[in-house]
Design a protein around this nucleic acid. Structure first.
Length: 424
RNA sequence: GGAGAGUUGGCAGAGUGGUAAUGCAACGGACUCGAAAUCCGCCGAACCGGCUUAUACCGGCGCGCAGGUUCAAAUCCUGUACUCUCCUCCA
């Protein structure tokens, strides 16, 4: 949620910024009108309560409750109660209207973002690595995987439908090697706490990170319980501290977790129908940071560097782009995407997304910290993939494929593959 | 799934209808060269509204959460979440 004080104080700035994210100015006008109306209603109801408290105070002090004077006061309070009830109802109604808008406004984009409605305006910032050259026609990863008998999409379709996969033998081993490698890197070298979180969360938790109420279509919610299968570990990791007030000395703190991510992929029918690129269930190693407001952009850079290191150690060529105002996620003020080189399609493909959400999620999930002077403020939260495991398997199969259909194992993974150097 | 107990300020812990004891910790002060001990003071800076440059201040709200009864609810009633114990079941 955007800090209401910012919207009150700088409505024109907010309108201009949210315009770049598809929000009409009149929505902000509505917001401000409800906000003012709400505060007026609160003042009115509180004033009535004050009157009531004075009267009940007098009644409780009265020695003779049956005296005419006291009875008159009791009658007065009875009447006042009706007025208060009406005032409360009016206030609640206005508040609900205000809140309806407030919780659906996306975060304010940072000034440094390229302005544009979609990915066409994303800007490349830097490249790393050498794009591999092949003296044969490189195959797509699903073809390599099926030929080697390590990926089985057909049987997964039989059992679960489209966008599922079985990994088998060296394929399963490669997936496991990758996420162990990633977790070791994040925990041992980069200072993250390793977490295994719940994979089913409540609606309130989904609200905290910004998926709800706007994006219920993108996830799987279990009908019988109302619980949702996490679409990313960001949800349980960021909400770890929901409702809490942390100590300043405990910040920053970093979490990482390997979890499956479940996504309905509603609205992406027909896109990336083949291979590991777009699945209903995929493994992802996620990184989440909690930090003081003044540090969050510095933390975003190091978070992105942490993700880059995964790809660099694996020897996969990638580039980094900054997402445009319209392409960045709902909760994010600034997002860097890492895109890995995929030889068969000749394109860079998203494999990590690193975002600074500022206090947007912290306000929703009520994650605060107490400063040394005793005052309380919201933390800033960040999240990034470090990295999507399934897409990394795809990238390795394609980038490390050899003419005979075998796949070389990247050096850093050999020990995680029990010494295996080639998948054949 | 069944039965019972519990949820109060940073922590401990009273309070069965009249508006949140007390202890510890913390904080401020006195004493001291300084510290400890002791004494005095203060202590919901969780949140909301008003007034403010900001404090302060005023008010609201506040005893897990949401409702209800009452002039008045931590106290009574209903629902619900979570924790613990026992039983059942189970990886």
């Amino acid at each position: 949620m955007i800090n209401p004080k910012i919207i009150r104080k700088n409505p024109d700035m907010v309108k201009a910024k949210l315009k770049t994210r598809g929000i009409e100015a009149k929505e902000i006008d509505q917001y401000l009108a409800f906000d003012q109306e709400n505060r007026d209603a609160i003042a009115e109801a509180e004033d009535l309560r004050k009157q009531k408290n004075q009267l009940t105070g007098q009644i409780s002090q009265a020695k003779d409750k049956r005296s005419e004077e006291t009875q008159a006061k009791i009658k007065q309070v009875k009447t006042l109660n009706n007025v208060i009830k009406a005032a409360d109802e009016k206030q609640k109604k206005v508040y609900a209207q205000w809140r309806y808008i407030a919780i659906r406004l996306p975060n304010l984009p940072d000034d440094s973002l390229p302005i544009g409605p979609d990915e066409a305006e994303d800007k490349e910032l830097r490249k790393w690595g050498t794009i591999p050259e092949f003296d044969f026609e490189p195959k797509a990863h699903w073809e390599i995987g099926e030929n080697l008998g390590i990926l089985d999409f057909d049987r997964a379709a039989k059992v679960s439908g489209a966008r599922f996969v079985y990994y088998k033998d060296a394929g399963a081993r490669l997936e496991r090697a990758l996420y162990n490698f990633m977790l070791d890197l994040h925990t041992q070298k980069q200072g993250y706490h390793e977490i295994i979180p719940p994979y089913l969360v409540t609606g309130k938790t989904m609200f905290g990170t910004g998926q709800f109420p706007k994006f219920t279509e993108d996830v799987y919610t279990v009908e019988s319980t109302g619980m949702t299968l996490i679409p990313t570990a960001e949800v349980p990791l960021t909400n770890y501290y929901s409702g809490e007030i942390l100590d300043e000395k405990d910040l920053p703190t970093y979490f990482t977790a390997l979890t499956p991510a479940f996504r309905s992929e509603a609205g992406s029918a027909g896109r990336d129908t083949r291979g590991l690129t777009r699945m209903h269930q995929f493994n992802k190693v996620e990184m989440v940071k909690f930090c003081k407001p003044e540090d969050s952009y510095k933390e975003l850079d190091s978070l992105t560097a942490n993700a880059q290191e995964v790809l660099e150690q694996l020897g996969l060529a990638y580039h980094v782009i900054v997402l445009s105002t319209g392409d960045a996620g709902f909760s994010s003020a600034k997002t860097f995407d890492l895109e890995v080189w995929m030889p068969e399609q000749n394109i860079y493909r998203e494999i990590s997304s690193c975002s600074n959400c500022l206090d947007f999620q912290a306000r929703r999930a009520m994650i605060r910290y107490r400063k040394e002077d005793g005052s309380v403020d919201y933390v800033h939260t960040l999240n990034g993939s470090g990295v999507a495991v399934g897409r990394t398997v795809a990238a390795i199969l394609e980038n490390y494929q050899q003419a005979d259909g075998s796949v070389k194992v990247p050096d850093v993974l050999v020990k995680y593959m029990n010494g295996m150097t080639v998948i054949k």
